[in-house]
Design a protein around this nucleic acid. Sequence first.
RNA 1: GGGGCUGUGGUGUAGCCUGGGCGAGCAUACCAGGUUUGGGACCUGGUGACCCCGGUUCAAAUCCGGGCAGCCCCA
Length: 477
Amino acid sequence: MVEDTKGLTVRKQEDLSEWYQQVILKAGLARYTAVSGCIAYLPRSYAIWERIQDVFNRMIKATGHANAYFPLFIPESLFQREEEHVEGFTPEVAWVTEAGSQKLRERLAVRPTSETIIYDTIRPMLRSYRDLPLLLNQWCNVVRWEFKHATPFLRGREFLWQEGHTVHATRDEALEEVYRILDFYQELVEDYLAIPVYRGRKSEGEKFAGADMTTTLEAVMPNGRAVQMATSHHLGEHFTRAFDVKVMGEDGQAFYPQSTSWGLSTRVIGALILTHGDDKGLIIPPRIAPEQARIIPIYQRDTRTRVETEAERVRKLLEEAGVRVTVDTRDGYTPGWKYSQQELEGVPLRIEIGMRDIEQEQVMLARRDTGERTSIPMKDLPEQIPRVLEDIQKTLYERARAMRDDLVKPAGTLEDVKTLIAEGRLALAGFCGRKACEEKLKEETGVNSRVLLEEGGEQACIICGGKGVTTLIGRSY
RNA sequence: GGGGCUGUGGUGUAGCCUGGGCGAGCAUACCAGGUUUGGGACCUGGUGACCCCGGUUCAAAUCCGGGCAGCCCCA
């Protein structure tokens, strides 16, 4: 263990940001580095990211998408091709201006997102409608330099993500893609990460720079701040026009195809920590947990071999049942120590095996979500453990849902919104999504709209009184 | 964009206000040995730190300036 594993010294409810920092360091998720705003993703968080990659890759590959990789650097001339895009991203772009002792002829942007380099590169690949759709995804890092306060995972200068880029013959197909991916994201976030989200679209002021429309999933953290979990954009013809990606149609007429882009980043790991953790540390939902169960052998000197053999037997048994399980074989740590560490690290299930259990052909089971400990017969393990894991998954989601519902309340007027914000909550209120109203909202309340709900009913805008829909409004990360 | 707080071994801290006894204390971690193991055991020995640069001074962890880094609050 690199980091001191002693327990947390604050309660989650008392000081969330101190708690968050301690969990990240003590559970070995990440470390601060010599570069301000850039963290090191250590194995205990990177393994979660790899699980996310597995799940998402399976979804997109099943629907015809393929992974690829484009350069980290983007020549300035390309980067500036799409007007809204440049305007939106320029303030936070890091530039490479020299190589060795030579000044570069043209500055290179370190990608904040890859639309520009991708469209420029794929142009020759798309000649005819027969080349469509093009369905690409890449897993990479991106850099966005401008921010005031870095928060590990949630906000930093460099982060990991996937960015999907697709090109379609028609607007309907592109929109279908936008929502197909949004569905995948929702499944990943709600069913795997056990974090409930609000689904809908971004206002004009908050949408992606260069998009016709941005769809989003927004989660709510215990301190009343929203986190954007994933976005899926309809880019219309913005980029195909800007990069002159033109294809021949069935009718012999050349046209600019429609495109989409969509992304989900390592910030979801931050949301996972904040949503599920408790005073003992992290709790990782079983479906996304790299390690779902940890066996802790309890022995005296003379029974060590016996107990360890049994622990290994149980491990294999569970592995065959599809459980991601490990054994804590370290000697010189007492069982109590190992329990605490397992709890800090958020492994959802602990299995204790000692002589007492072996004699009775059972094991002790401890749930990380409820703290509940029960003994179950050895022979029932392959069937019981997966069931308990699913139950933990469900409990975590329900708990998160209850927390969110407690933090988000309906508001009928601008005054109601102000009151809720002052209480550290978020509001659901009618909003039209226009830029002028967003500015007024920001001015009056200090916060922005997060998402215009897809299934929110029509509701008059609390600013202009015009046509609007139910919208999540509040602070965000 | 504005304001505040903080920086001491791997980690958490004492010391700083009021400069000298600080040759930097404590706890924990780490290493070696012994002992122990059903909720963070114990004994012995050992390794290990004043964020960086400059200034004031006979003397700086301590005071001043700048930088870097982290945290908090407000817009």
